[in-house]
Computed example of a mutant assay.
Amino acid sequence: MPAGSNAKRERQYEHIKEGAEKRGASEKRAKEIASRTVNKERARSGEAKSSSRTSIMDPKSASQRGGERSHSGSQGPTKDQLYNEAKKKNIEGRSSMNKQELRKALGH
Rank of each mutant, 00 (worst) to 15 (best):
M1F: 07
M1G: 09
P2D: 11
P2L: 09
G4Q: 03
S5K: 05
N6Y: 02
N6T: 05
A7Y: 03
R9P: 01
R9H: 12
E10Q: 11
E10C: 06
R11I: 06
Q12T: 04
Q12R: 08
Y13I: 00
E14W: 04
H15C: 00
I16Q: 01
A20K: 02
E21Y: 01
E21P: 00
K22I: 05
K22Q: 08
R23H: 03
G24Y: 06
S26Q: 05
K28S: 06
R29A: 14
E32S: 13
I33L: 10
I33S: 09
I33R: 03
A34R: 01
A34V: 01
A34Q: 01
A34T: 01
A34K: 01
S35T: 09
V38Q: 03
N39S: 12
K40N: 13
E41M: 07
E41D: 13
R42C: 14
A43R: 08
R44L: 12
R44V: 09
S45E: 14
S45R: 10
S45Y: 05
G46L: 11
G46S: 10
E47D: 11
K49R: 09
K49V: 10
K49W: 05
S50C: 09
S50V: 14
S51H: 07
S51W: 04
S52R: 11
S52Q: 08
S52A: 10
S52T: 13
R53T: 03
R53G: 00
R53I: 01
R53V: 03
T54C: 14
I56N: 13
I56K: 14
D58H: 15
D58N: 15
D58K: 12
D58L: 08
D58R: 12
P59Q: 07
P59Y: 04
K60Y: 14
K60E: 14
K60I: 04
S61M: 11
S63T: 12
R65L: 12
G66N: 11
G67I: 04
G67D: 08
R69E: 15
S70A: 14
S70F: 06
H71V: 09
S72L: 13
S72I: 10
S72N: 15
G73V: 06
S74R: 15
G76M: 05
G76D: 06
P77W: 06
P77V: 03
T78H: 02
T78L: 02
K79H: 00
K79M: 00
L82K: 11
Y83D: 01
Y83M: 07
N84S: 13
E85I: 07
A86R: 03
K87G: 00
K87A: 02
K88L: 02
N90Q: 10
N90R: 10
E92Y: 06
E92T: 14
R94N: 01
R94I: 02
S95I: 09
S95P: 06
S96I: 15
M97A: 13
N98Q: 07
N98E: 10
E101D: 11
E101T: 08
E101N: 07
L102I: 08
L102M: 06
K104A: 10
L106I: 01
L106Y: 02
L106F: 02
H108F: 12
